[in-house]
């Protein structure tokens, strides 16, 4: 009969307990916070390496036929702005940014009241119902969700059929900016509502009641109480939704019928159809820098506003 180390499992547990005790030891207390952030730090470092690699590729010329890297050059960045394709790349970039900003703005307008309704409604049934409706888009995969919209927005889909009843032929909006916009909005609004809900929940309802008692209109209550106090949640929602929209791929590809590509679609084409990793890297970095600036800019402006106007007044 073969010897079996039956106590092996117990020894491992003892070892873990010992390790835990050592970690709790006073001399390790100081480095424990660093240990806790270490995994996140490693992940971010790996991402940084990836971005550095993209940067390295983007500053070299590249022969796609021979698959050979050339000398350091600004060739890839020049291609993004110079003829014959530069104008198209820049159009794609501006379409991506404008559409993302628009969808994010409309999502905020629609998502915040939805979050408020869920938090403040006294009806448990309504709260659950609205929450379920918000969560449904997340329960299905992105491709399934996008194809569901494809079926609705097509000429031979539900929208085309309804418009056909009024004598409007080919009334579908696939392949149009409106079609892509609706598809993106349907994902963004629930996301905003879910991200803003905790912030709204933290607002004391008595503040609203007090303001109303003092004669404030609902619009004033929103402007002076709800929006300022929900600001942390709103800011988080703007960052998440804007970044997700800027990186959108499926909606422009499927609902745009390939006619209204976003930067992510074009980067995909550059990588695969053109086999040019170097040009794709350059475009990826341009998008990364611009989207980072877009995220940072409002925070910088708000900070400046607080420093120079609000703080001075008080």
């Amino acid at each position: 009969m073969q010897y079996r180390d039956v106590a092996f499992g117990w020894r491992v547990i003892d070892w873990i307990i010992d390790l835990g005790a050592k970690l709790r030891a006073e001399k390790l207390v100081r480095i424990r916070p660093y240990l806790m952030v270490a995994p996140a730090f490693i992940l971010v470092s790996l991402l940084a390496i990836g971005i550095f690699y993209l940067g390295w590729l983007s500053i070299h010329s590249f022969d796609t036929f021979l698959f050979q890297q050339g000398p350091i050059s600004a060739e890839q960045y020049k291609r993004l702005i110079e003829p014959p394709s530069g104008e198209f790349y820049m159009n794609t970039l501006s379409r991506t940014l404008v559409m993302s900003l628009l969808v994010t703005a409309v999502s905020m307008v629609l998502g915040l009241p939805a979050a408020y309704f869920i938090v403040r409604t006294p009806s448990r049934t309504m709260r659950v119902l609205v929450l379920v409706l918000l969560l449904v888009p997340f329960l299905m995969g992105e491709i399934v969700r996008t194809f569901a919209w494809f079926m609705i927005l097509a000429n031979r889909g539900a929208l085309g059929w309804i418009l056909g009843l009024f004598g409007i032929e080919d009334g579908g909006i696939l392949g149009t900016p409106q079609g892509v916009f609706i598809g993106m909005l349907q994902v963004s609004v629930p996301l905003v509502a879910l991200l803003v809900m905790p912030a709204v929940r933290r607002i004391d309802p008595n503040l609203e009641r007090a303001a109303a008692t003092l004669g404030a209109s609902p619009a004033r209550i929103w402007r002076h109480i709800l929006i300022p106090l929900a600001w942390p949640g709103l800011a988080a929602a703007v960052v998440v939704v804007l970044l997700l929209n800027i990186a959108e791929y499926d909606m422009p590809a499927i609902l745009g019928l390939g006619r209204l590509p976003f930067v992510a679609n074009i980067i995909g084409d550059i990588y695969t159809l053109q086999q040019n990793l170097y040009l794709g890297s350059a475009f990826s970095l341009v998008l990364l820098v611009i989207s980072s600036l877009m995220i940072m800019l409002p925070f910088i402006l708000i900070r400046l506003y607080w420093i120079y106007f609000v703080a001075r007044k008080t």
């Binding site: 394709s85 198209f88 794609t92 159809l273 053109q274 040009l279």
Partner: peptide, 14 residues
């Protein structure tokens, strides 16, 4: 491939 594909994509896309 790289050159023609880039020019073609720019020609057909909006």
């Amino acid at each position: 491939r790289d050159k023609w594909q880039a020019a073609y994509t720019a020609a057909i896309q909006k």
